[in-house]
Design a protein around this nucleic acid. Sequence first.
DNA 1: CAGTGGTCTAGACCACGCG
DNA 2: GCGTGGTCTAGACCACTGC
Lengths: 258, 258
Amino acid sequence: MADSRAPKYHRMADALRREIRDGELPPGHRLPAETALSERFRISLPTVRQALSVLRAEGLIESRHGVGTFVKEQRRLQRRSRGRYGSARGHGKLLTHHLRHDIVFAGRGEAPAHIAEIMGLKPGAEVVIRRRNLFDKETGQPEEIGASYLPVEVAGGTYLEEPKVVPKALFLCVEELTGRHYTRARDQWIARMPTADEAATLELPNGAAVLHVVHTARDENGNVLEISESVWPADRVVVIDDYDIEQAADEPSAPSEV
Amino acid sequence: MADSRAPKYHRMADALRREIRDGELPPGHRLPAETALSERFRISLPTVRQALSVLRAEGLIESRHGVGTFVKEQRRLQRRSRGRYGSARGHGKLLTHHLRHDIVFAGRGEAPAHIAEIMGLKPGAEVVIRRRNLFDKETGQPEEIGASYLPVEVAGGTYLEEPKVVPKALFLCVEELTGRHYTRARDQWIARMPTADEAATLELPNGAAVLHVVHTARDENGNVLEISESVWPADRVVVIDDYDIEQAADEPSAPSEV
DNA sequence: CAGTGGTCTAGACCACGCG
DNA sequence: GCGTGGTCTAGACCACTGC
């Protein structure tokens, strides 16, 4: 860490990183101005900015134009993936009651390429789409971008095409409407840089990544009932999945004499 | 995208990004030297470098010191999370046969803070640790850093303390050795910047993120049997979870005459 | 208005990989 | 030796925020 042969911006980033981790620079604290840091570390302004850009990419600091550079809250908020069904089977409640749901869109639309591919449809085929943005009820901060894609034969002509909050977990609505059963699921996890739209919606600082999960649910015949995807600001969340582990089915039944 | 009021480095990044997406700059292709890009876009060298750093952070390009800047393979390799048990219950095989396992360490050690906290132990308490690095068998490229932490009362004195590849999925070993059953699990997903060690082990380019999952498995009494964590290079993988969706327990049993 | 970070330039020198 | 990207400097001007 204190390698004196390391680049200056690297050593400066290390020094500031340590001060942040050790609490000398607590969350919310304003760092000295770049010109002040330049004098303190005896490093030129461009190099100071390079060091800060490293910490910005790590999510440790955040710069506000015209205001200053601040130590970010390091607390990651726990967010629940929508990929679990066990608890909702019991009470049917949504797990996101502390978030405000904004239905951005609900109705028919063209399936994005990666969705059409999973569903086995041609690119641009029509599906039922529900888009929503989720905000923290207290701070108003955007916390999640969500979208659900349902085949027309599953959700066409139902209230799922209407831009209203559904009365219970989406999969319970689909099962009730179709009589088909959610049987098997696949979650695909990706971390990547945001699109311009995502960066704007989630109010992401420059260089921040997103965590993206694509959840595909199928019935017992392998037909897709629903694809839902969620996009979170990567540096602000830890996404949690709780689930039961199925017990061994082929476990030999205990011999009676043992 | 083509906003003429956008910063130069942003417009240049957009232009190159489009050329890469459209295949004009195919994967593996070498970009013109920074000096050539500077002339082509009529942008100063530092600003060209700023534009390239954006694309580097997105994982679209990779620079090799003294050689050049190249378009990266955009294929994300599918990696399976170790959080699923269903299929392994059947055949007991590991799902990572296309990867080479290097056991880095196996034995007693101090639990890292976040592991000790989940286990309800004091920081630095002794646990059984198994660390491994996984490499692609074909390319030799590092693909995953893995670690498993087991309470001493679970794995102490067993062959799990020996630095050898286990004969089957770890959870089957633990169930066999202890007679306890994996019952409930929690996965915690995080995307973050790598530590210096991780960046070196995974051969990550500057600014690349990692995808990190902490998997906690408990028995029917809620006691931790195992915590396993995996760290992947975020821009090279999509991590897949397949699982069965439990059917409604309160579903009315089918009438016999139907 | 003063102070801040954001953008941009024109250089210089070094470190690396390769022929 | 040559061309490459990596590091670093000394500036300049602009855009934003808050007083």
